[in-house]
């Protein structure tokens, strides 16, 4: 255990002194890594912000029940009773065709149009807020209501919501592809950096092997390098991401005010921090391991 600790602290100190020796160059490598990491993180945060927005909209999704033009008052009454006793309905509101026309007439722009009408074209309507939000429950409710006498159409106000959801799913796929591509870029960047380090230390590696260094002794400092590049890149990426999101939020705030919402993009949270750092360190370790294994053992035999 003691030897194990000594070996690791020895390797770590060696790596840190080497990194400090060419601080400027290493900073640029970390920046390259940070950019490849920041892009998927920003995209992820934007996507999850929008998913959150969609979720909140879903909570007040409505269903509209338009009655046939020739629906009688008794039909309206019986629908009213059915709705009042239906378990899947949270609350509902009835708006008669007269009330709807009056509402329409309130807007002065429509005044002329309404004057030219011979008769009221608007149907009686119920506006329903379902109790459940799952698509299957809502579909069931829709088909239940469509069978009622006097109902012309049942409309769920979620067509646009569906489209937005499809767009978000598309965005998630794009995020996955982007993350994978940039992950490969990260492999290449860290792997190449480590290969360069190996090249400058080829003599030392060879001598060390000749006088009894184990493979893990030689590999260890490079693994630390890879992990440190990954971690430094991840931390820089999170700083970059936060700056970009804060900048976006400045312009989003005024846009959101127009829509009377307080929507803003999410900043990286603790989970994002952990996941980003962990995956960057992992990629750093793996690419360093591959680079060392490739470049190492042909020096003897």
């Amino acid at each position: 255990m003691n030897i194990w600790l000594t070996q690791h602290s020895q390797a770590l100190r060696l790596v840190i002194s080497r990194l400090r020796a060419s601080l400027f160059g290493n900073l640029f490598i970390a920046l390259t890594i940070a950019v490849s990491l920041a892009l998927p993180v920003i995209m992820y945060l934007v996507l999850t912000s929008f998913s959150g927005l969609v979720g909140s909209i879903k909570n007040d999704s409505h269903m509209s029940l338009f009655l046939a033009a020739d629906a009688t008052l008794t039909m309206v009454d019986s629908i009213h009773n059915t709705l009042a006793t239906h378990s899947a309905i949270k609350q509902f509101k009835f708006i008669s065709k007269e009330a709807a026309l009056k509402q329409l007439a309130n807007d002065s722009q429509n005044e002329y149009i309404i004057q030219t009408l011979d008769e009221n074209p608007l149907p009686d309507a119920f506006f329903i807020e379902p109790a459940a939000l799952e698509t299957t429950a809502i579909k069931q409710l829709k088909s239940d209501l469509a069978q009622l006498d006097g109902v012309e159409t049942v409309q769920i106000d979620d067509a646009w919501l569906k489209r937005l959801n499809y767009l978000l799913a598309l965005g998630e796929n794009a995020l996955l592809v982007l993350a994978m591509l940039l992950g490969f870029a990260l492999f290449a960047v860290i792997g190449n950096t480590i290969r360069m380090q190996i090249l400058t230390q080829q003599e030392e590696i060879e001598v060390s092997q000749l006088i009894g260094a184990t493979h893990s002794f030689i590999r260890r400092p490079f693994l630390y390098s890879g992990a440190i590049y990954g971690l430094a890149g991840a931390l820089l990426a999170l700083i970059m991401t936060s700056c970009v999101i804060l900048l976006f939020n400045l312009s989003i705030a005024s846009l959101a005010a127009e829509y009377q919402t307080d929507f803003s993009l999410r900043l990286p949270d603790f989970t994002t921090l952990i996941v980003t750092c962990f995956s960057a360190i992992l990629i750093g370790l793996i690419s360093a391991y591959i680079a060392v294994s490739k470049s190492l053992f042909n020096s003897i035999n």
Binding site: E203, E204, E206, V207, Q209, L210, I211, G212, A213, T214, H215, F217
Partner: peptide, 20 residues
């Protein structure tokens, strides 16, 4: 993987020094 431990029993002076 056992060879490095054997090599440590020896002190080697190489023909071309192999100094760093």
């Amino acid at each position: 993987s056992a060879l490095p431990y054997i090599r440590r029993k020896f002190g080697l002076v190489f023909q071309d020094h192999k100094l760093l």
